[in-house]
Simulated scan of single mutants.
Amino acid sequence: MRFDVCTLFPEMFESYLGQSILKRAIDRELVSVHRWDFRDYTDDKHNKVDDRPFGGGPGMLIRCQPVFDCVEAVRQVDDENDEPDELISLTPQGERLDQQLAAELATRKRVILLCGRYEGFDERIRLGLKPREVSIGDFVLNGGEVAAMVVIDSVVRLLPGVLGDETSSKYDSFSESGLLEYPQYTRPREYRGMTVPEVLIGGNHEEVARWRAEQSLQRTKERRADLIQQQSQDDAG
Rank of each mutant, 00 (worst) to 15 (best):
V199D: 09
R110Y: 01
W36F: 15
E119S: 09
L159I: 14
R110F: 01
L87N: 05
F68E: 06
E176L: 13
E11C: 03
G144Y: 08
E104Y: 06
E206W: 06
G116T: 05
T167I: 06
Q184S: 14
M194E: 14
V196E: 10
G202N: 15
P188C: 09
D51N: 01
I88R: 03
Q100I: 09
L141D: 02
N204Y: 06
R157F: 02
R223P: 02
E190Q: 14
S89D: 11
F68H: 12
V74Y: 07
S135D: 05
N81S: 13
V199G: 07
Q229S: 15
R52E: 12
S169T: 08
M194G: 00
G59A: 05
G144C: 03
P131S: 08
D153V: 01
L61H: 04
V134P: 11
Q99P: 04
F139A: 04
A106I: 01
D50H: 04
E198K: 15
G178W: 11
L8P: 08
E11Y: 06
G120E: 07
E176A: 08
W211F: 12
D27G: 00
D50R: 04
D235K: 14
N142S: 15
M194F: 13
E11W: 07
I201Y: 11
A148K: 03
F68P: 08
F13V: 00
V140Y: 06
L113Q: 06
I152M: 13
A103M: 12
G56N: 02
P10N: 03
G128H: 13
E145L: 06
S173K: 09
S168H: 09
L163K: 07
V151Q: 05
D4T: 01
Q215N: 07
A106N: 00
S177V: 03
C115W: 03
R212G: 00
L180M: 11
Q76H: 12
T186L: 05
P131N: 08
G59L: 00
R212C: 02
R117G: 00
M1H: 05
C6V: 09
R224S: 03
S135K: 06
L129I: 06
K23E: 11
Y182E: 01
P58R: 03
R219Y: 09
E72P: 09
V31T: 02
A25D: 00
V162K: 00
R117A: 07
G164R: 02
R28L: 11
S169K: 09
C70P: 14
G164H: 02
P53M: 04
G55V: 07
L114M: 13
V5H: 10
R117N: 07
G137M: 08
S232R: 15
R210K: 15
E80G: 12
Q19V: 10
S173E: 10
Q99Y: 11
G94L: 05
I112C: 02
L61W: 08
S173Q: 05
V31Y: 01
D98Y: 11
R52T: 11
F139Q: 01
E14T: 15
S89N: 14
L127Y: 10
I125Q: 04
L105T: 00
Y191R: 10
C70W: 10
Q233I: 14
T167M: 11
V134L: 10
D44E: 10
Q76G: 15
D172S: 04
S89Y: 15
S177W: 09
S15A: 14
L17G: 01
P160K: 07
L90Q: 01
L113E: 05
I228K: 06
R157Q: 02
Q19T: 11
